[in-house]
């Protein structure tokens, strides 16, 4: 059973991934993760996002790690979640996408990784702007959280830590 980790905790997943073949549904329900094509073709039927209750998660969409960043940036309005699919864990394109969605597009909603997520990738995801990811099972989720916590501090600036170590630690003692 896939397990969702959000903000370093194992949580129930309130979201549902809607396959792109469901394009017929003009007003996707709350908690739907649409394909990007479906999302962009909704003719901006975003009125439902104006009336969503505080408890409900809103709507979002998913993209492949290699998607064109500019296109995604242009369609973030109304999305409370963006999920990035990693087709292979060793494919780092999704990491750059995460960094850009946060730093350049100013996306502040849930940024989630799914697909082939090795628990050891979590530390990179976490520092590239992802605050959620889905792994294979409970054990993998625990390993992923531990691996993020196993390194206290890193050299570089990141989506998580905008200042590199050399600016933060004077004289680096």
């Amino acid at each position: 059973m896939p397990v969702l980790v959000k903000n370093l905790e194992i949580v129930d997943d309130p979201w549902t991934l809607i396959d792109s073949s469901d394009k017929g549904d003009p007003v996707p329900g709350e908690g739907s993760i649409l394909s990007f094509e479906h999302w962009t073709s909704r003719a901006h039927a975003t009125t439902e996002t104006c009336v969503r209750s505080l408890r409900s998660p809103g709507v979002g969409f998913w993209v492949d790690g290699e998607v064109d960043v500019e296109r995604v940036c242009d369609h973030l309005d109304g999305a409370s979640l963006v999920a990035v699919k990693f087709r292979a864990f060793a494919d780092g394109r999704g990491l750059s996408l995460g960094v850009l969605l946060r730093s350049r597009c100013g996306f502040t909603g849930e940024l989630r990784a799914f697909g082939d997520i090795l628990p050891d990738l979590a530390q990179y995801l976490h520092r590239s702007g992802f605050n959620a990811f889905v792994v294979e099972n409970h054990r993998a989720a625990e390993v992923a959280i531990a691996s993020i916590q196993s390194i206290t501090d890193h050299y570089q600036a990141s989506a998580l830590q905008p200042e590199p170590a050399f600016r933060r630690i004077s004289a680096r003692g």
Binding site: L95, S128, I151, Y155, S158, L160
Partner: peptide, 8 residues
């Protein structure tokens, strides 16, 4: 070294 974005 262990760059968040460029290790893969």
């Amino acid at each position: 070294t262990q760059h968040p974005e460029f290790d893969w």
